[in-house]
Nucleic acid binder design. Structure first.
Lengths: 135, 135
DNA sequence: CTGAATCCGCTCGGATACTG
DNA sequence: CAGTATCCGAGCGGATTCAG
């Protein structure tokens, strides 16, 4: 554990409520509800990864399939439909032959970017942490 | 959508890679892997909520049960065990009668705080967004 | 090319009862 | 008080096939 991280942790600890547990629980209901709400929309194996890709522009269906090597078409189309219904993703159909369909983030979808960044960062750091622990 | 949010989105868009999709995909493999790694550890309905509570101090088992109104003992003990194995949570047993057990975040657990904060914030904002959309 | 349809196993997570 | 044991249903997500 490096020094910078220790400082960060100390800072976090200084923010915390520090009351008796039962008061914290009372004070914390809304936070927990918010976490549940978020998870309800972006949980599952694929949604975050899809959004993460779409952060960088517009993708066709087949491009997304390439970008998410182990996803099946069933899951990809289901997840995209879910995301579209929640107004996070915009689907656009081109009337060509053969058809071309593109997906991109809606403006509202970009509000998830900070979350995606944290998810990514933590995963990267965690990998380092595991490596160090093994050696 | 307020002005501040629009500015944020514009900023995010300026960060993005903006290359042809296939190049982005190649460049993005590590990021997607990192997201998967993170989800592997903190996915599920309860883990994030538990960590969020533990950010604010030490809790007894029964206090956690109160704080997470719909969790069953089976899930609570399973999730706590998982978190302990990943070195995110520290379990401490007091040799009293009856026994007392407390849980608190390990230092490594505090590295998840930024992620928790984003999860919470987004859930709160999303609630407002839904309300506004309905009216 | 972009999916929809069908089938199916497996794991997540809930309900209930019980123990040191 | 702090869990464990057992059972069970729902749904997530994979495999495969087919269609416009």
């Amino acid at each position: 554990m490096n020094k910078e991280l220790k400082e960060k942790i100390a800072e976090f600890k200084s923010y915390r409520i520090d009351k008796p547990p039962l008061e914290i629980i009372e004070h914390y209901k809304k936070e927990l509800q918010a976490i549940q709400d978020t998870l309800e929309i972006v949980s599952g194996r694929w949604k975050m990864q899809i959004i993460s890709l779409l952060c960088n522009g517009e993708f066709r269906y087949s491009e997304l399939e390439k970008g998410l090597p182990k996803i099946t078409p069933r899951m990809l189309s289901k997840e995209l439909r879910d995301l579209e219904q929640n107004e996070l993703v915009i689907r656009k159909v081109y009337d060509t032959i053969p058809v071309k369909v593109t997906y991109k983030l809606a403006d509202y979808g970009y509000t998830l970017v900070p979350l995606i960044i944290e998810l990514t960062n933590w995963g990267m750091e965690h990998r380092k942490y595991i490596m160090k622990r093994k050696s």
